[in-house]
């Protein structure tokens, strides 16, 4: 590596498109970086590709020839799943729950973060601390009593997922949004109030549009959390598979077709794809959200 460094410093790259100035900075070998990148990509994508390809296999082919390409290459598994309503119902359920959760978290979270960031009143810090303690209460700790509470309140089905998920998503949302809202210049308010806009009007007309980037970030985090949720559906959505969300649907399907591995592979691949595409498109937002949450 050291040898490579020397040649690099002596021959400054002239591409000009690089962020780094000249070739001043020893960067380690590009080959090492590409090598590590290839290993990382292979270890990540390998199992996923194996799963997707497995969906195109026959059961016999999977046993006889697991490493090669599917032979015969058949669409039957995927077609069987896609031509029946079950998968689509579960996809719809997951989407509805995730959208409703995201909307609730973002709406209620922004509403709560607004006074906590921009009003001055006595109990403000106290209320904020109450919300932040929520980070100490993971769903796992609360899930058994929560199940009973929902049962006693008569909240069942998908609403039984949405409402607690909103509640559990609020702390992170408020913690991310509050400093963001507080950082907006206070001249905005002064100018708006001089123009006769009320605080509520200011919230709707000024704050919401300005807070959009931060709201998208917390929204994406809430959406992922909801889409992947397993523990709460496991307790609440028992019985009819057509009322389940995708993660639970996948485990149920796996239990019912335990002999048909390639069918399970196809079902799992299909359940993975929409989310994977969405998340990869939103990668920037997710990373911003996570690093934002980490750095406060």
């Amino acid at each position: 590596m050291a040898v490579d460094l020397n040649t690099r410093t002596e021959t400054p790259r002239s591409t000009g498109r690089t962020r780094r100035r000249g070739g001043l900075l020893p960067e380690g070998s590009t080959y090492v970086a590409i090598g590590i990148a290839l290993v990382g990509v292979g270890l990540t994508l390998g199992p996923i590709l194996y799963l997707i390809l497995g969906g195109f296999r026959t059961q016999g082919d999977l046993a006889a020839n697991p490493t090669g390409l599917p032979d015969p290459f058949m669409w039957q598994n995927y077609w069987d799943i896609l031509s029946k309503p079950m998968f689509w119902r579960q996809l719809l359920n997951s989407t509805l729950v995730a959208v409703a959760t995201t909307a609730g978290v973002v709406l209620f979270g922004t509403m709560a973060a607004y006074p906590l960031a921009r009003y001055s009143f006595k109990a403000r810090e106290f209320i904020f601390v109450i919300f932040t303690t929520g980070l100490m209460f993971p769903l796992t700790v609360a899930v058994l009593p929560l199940y009973l509470l929902l049962r006693d309140m008569g909240i069942s089905g998908l609403w039984g997922l949405v409402i607690p998920q909103i509640a559990f998503g609020l702390p992170v949302t408020i913690i991310i949004l509050r400093p963001f809202l507080a950082a907006l210049p206070k001249e905005l308010e002064e100018a708006s109030f001089m123009d006769g806009i009320s605080r509520i009007g200011f919230f709707w007309r000024m704050l919401l549009p300005l807070a959009r980037p931060a709201m998208v970030t917390v929204g994406v985090l809430a959406f992922i959390g909801s889409w992947n949720a397993y523990l709460l559906p496991l307790l609440l959505l028992t019985g009819d598979p057509s009322g389940m969300t995708l993660p639970l649907g996948v485990t149920t399907f796996q239990g019912q077709h335990s002999a048909a591995t390639t069918m399970i592979m196809a079902y799992t691949s299909l359940a993975m794809l929409p989310a994977l595409v969405f998340f990869l498109l939103m990668e920037r937002r997710i990373v911003d959200g996570l690093t934002g949450a980490v750095k406060g």
């Binding site: 509403m111 509640a167 408020i174």
Partner: peptide, 26 residues
């Protein structure tokens, strides 16, 4: 105070009911 209650109220009620109360119940 009415505005504060309006803005913070829904989140606080949800949070106390579905997060804090179950934890205390546990």
């Amino acid at each position: 105070w009415a505005e504060i209650a309006l803005f913070v109220g829904p989140a606080l009620v949800l949070f106390l009911t579905f997060v804090v109360y179950p934890v205390v119940s546990a």
